[in-house]
Amino acid sequence: MTEVLREIRDQVMYLTIHGPATMNSMTPESMSGLEAALDEAEASDDLRAVVITGTGDRAFSVGIDITFLGDCFGDPHVVFLPYLDRFHAVLRRFELLPVPVVAAVNGLARAGGFEIILACDLVVVADDTRVGDIHLEFGVPPGAGASQRAARKLGDQRAKALMLTSMWLDAETMVRWGLALEAVPRADLMAAAERIVDRVRGLSRPGIAVTKLAIGGAQDRTLSQGLAFEREMFERFLATEGADEGYAAFVEKRRPEWGSADVSALL
């Protein structure tokens, strides 16, 4: 059984996919853990970021648990498809969460583990990381969004090469292709993730939410539509309490003070 460990420290939620006996494979229990974590994250008015990683030094996640996969194929409509629906919903919640989700990829990530990475906002990887879709090695297509997210993030040719040939990407290629922001020595992985989230700690929560959602909105809109969406989001931001705090702090020559904020009206 794989579970998801979570804790909140200094405005950041840390999630760990914890199933060391099965290389952090995904199970219904781990899906429940991600759903519970997202419930908590969405209810928090103080959170500024989420970091997700895997237990140990072998794998981030190797995707769906092989034993559970047998149950899935044994009853596709009662087990497999409902599980995929939950997976889709969790990854979409990552994308719509009003704070950045940072993946710290600590080893092998394949299939469902790779699909989690695609849904994260920022990715840092250990320099010995290898990732791949590889669904077709098992004779099945991707089922949790990889075909759509990879095409948007990598372009048509690279997405097809990645999925149709079941190729693996090393850490250097991930950075070169834009799948990862940075590759670092394994011992420095969490420090690299920490450097990212440390830059958003204490910042304007409405500002973070609007910026992330506006950038995400560009994926599904023409330029004209996207510009109108940014204008709409900016107007919503102006209606939030403390929207002028950064300006006021600059004029008054002091550090801005951005505390907790309910950003539900922005979503």
Rank of each mutant, 00 (worst) to 15 (best):
L96D: 08
A41Y: 07
G63A: 12
T22R: 11
D121C: 05
V51Q: 05
P20T: 10
A119W: 04
I17H: 06
I66D: 15
D45V: 00
M26G: 03
D85G: 01
D57P: 08
E40F: 01
A43K: 08
V102F: 03
G74E: 12
D45M: 05
D57V: 13
A89I: 00
V105N: 10
G113Y: 06
A103T: 11
V105E: 12
C120F: 03
M26F: 09
M26Y: 05
S61T: 13
L96W: 00
A43S: 08
F114I: 04
D85T: 07
A59Y: 09
E35D: 09
V102A: 02
L47I: 08
P76L: 12
V51I: 15
T22C: 03
V90A: 05
A43R: 06
L108F: 06
P98D: 12
D85Q: 08
A103W: 10
P82I: 00
A21N: 11
A111L: 05
M23L: 14
D85H: 09
H77S: 14
C72G: 15
V99R: 04
V62A: 08
E115T: 05
E29A: 09
V123C: 14
D45W: 03
R110H: 04
A89P: 00
N24C: 13
R93V: 01
S25D: 14
G107C: 11
S25R: 10
F87N: 02
C72Y: 10
V51F: 08
E35L: 00
F60I: 13
T55P: 00
A104N: 06
V123F: 11
S32A: 11
R86N: 02
V79Y: 07
D39Q: 08
G19V: 14
A59E: 10
V79D: 11
L69S: 15
V62I: 12
I17G: 08
Y83Q: 04
G107M: 12
A41S: 09
D121A: 02
S44C: 02
G56P: 10
I66N: 14
V102R: 03
V50C: 02
A41L: 04
F87T: 00
G112I: 05
L38P: 12
C120M: 00
T53W: 12
L38F: 11
E35Y: 04
I64Y: 15
T55N: 13
V101R: 02
E42I: 01
T55Y: 14
L34W: 05
V99S: 03
V102T: 01
L34G: 04
T67Y: 15
I66E: 15
V99M: 09
R86F: 01
F73C: 09
A103F: 05
D121L: 01
L34N: 07
V123I: 15
T67L: 15
D39N: 07
I52F: 10
S44G: 06
I66Y: 07
R93K: 06
E42W: 06
V50A: 03
F73R: 06
P28Y: 01
A109V: 09
F68S: 13
C120S: 07
L97P: 00
E95V: 05
L38D: 12
M23W: 12
A89M: 00
R92W: 02
V99W: 06
P82H: 04
F68A: 13
L69M: 15
R93W: 01
V79P: 12
A104G: 09
L34E: 11
S32F: 09
F60Y: 15
V79M: 08
L122F: 01
S25I: 07
C120E: 02
D57L: 15
S25M: 06
N106I: 10
